[in-house]
Simulated assay, not measured.
Amino acid sequence: MEKELKNITFTVIENGTQIPISTRHGSYPNLMYLLKEELQLESFGECGGVGRCATCVITTKGLTGAAAIKERNEPTTLEKLGHSDEATRLSCQIYITPDLDGAEITILEI
């Protein structure tokens, strides 16, 4: 019997408005694609998710597991922009997994 996938629910804050999002594990390649499609964000994620352009910068609260770890190009890209705190992330580097459940994601102005 195939295991049923549970909904992953989190809150996105864009321009001060809270938007509840509900999705499933692996429904998008990463959080950047989900945000871009669901919220119709222009000029968001211009490099296509390789962690270089920083047009998908967010702050996070409540990420768990692997989602809370910065890997690949992310730390270097964020440091070049002066973002050194752990809560600031590139949404292209966060996968759609249960580690997002209950989190709060704030989209930053570019």
Results as ranks from 00 to 15, higher is better:
Met1Trp: 11
Glu2Gln: 12
Glu2His: 13
Leu5Asn: 10
Asn7Glu: 14
Asn7Met: 11
Ile8Arg: 11
Ile8Gly: 10
Phe10Tyr: 14
Phe10Lys: 05
Val12Ile: 06
Thr17Asn: 13
Gln18Ser: 11
Pro20Arg: 15
Ile21Thr: 03
Ser22Asn: 08
Thr23Ala: 09
His25Leu: 07
His25Glu: 11
His25Pro: 03
Gly26His: 10
Gly26Asn: 12
Gly26Cys: 02
Gly26Arg: 13
Ser27Gln: 10
Tyr28Ala: 06
Pro29Thr: 04
Asn30Met: 07
Met32Phe: 00
Tyr33Leu: 12
Leu34Asp: 03
Lys36Pro: 13
Lys36Ser: 00
Glu38Ile: 12
Leu39Gly: 11
Gln40Asp: 12
Leu41Gln: 13
Leu41Phe: 10
Ser43Arg: 15
Gly45Cys: 07
Glu46Ser: 14
Cys47Asp: 15
Gly48Tyr: 14
Gly49Phe: 05
Val50Met: 15
Val50Ser: 04
Gly51Ala: 01
Gly51Tyr: 11
Gly51Asp: 02
Arg52His: 11
Arg52Asn: 12
Arg52Met: 08
Thr59Ala: 02
Thr60Gln: 08
Lys61Gly: 03
Leu63Phe: 01
Thr64Met: 05
Ala66Glu: 13
Ala66Trp: 06
Ala67Met: 02
Lys70His: 02
Arg72Asp: 14
Asn73Asp: 09
Pro75His: 00
Pro75Ala: 01
Thr76Cys: 03
Thr77Glu: 00
Gly82Leu: 14
Gly82Ser: 08
Ser84Val: 04
Asp85Glu: 12
Glu86Asp: 03
Thr88Glu: 01
Leu90Cys: 13
Ser91Tyr: 09
Cys92Ala: 15
Gln93Trp: 00
Tyr95Pro: 07
Tyr95Gly: 07
Ile96Asn: 13
Ile96Pro: 15
Thr97Glu: 09
Pro98Glu: 15
Ile105Lys: 06
Thr106Ala: 05
Thr106Lys: 13
Ile107Val: 07
Leu108Thr: 01
Glu109Lys: 10
Ile110Gln: 10
Ile110Arg: 10
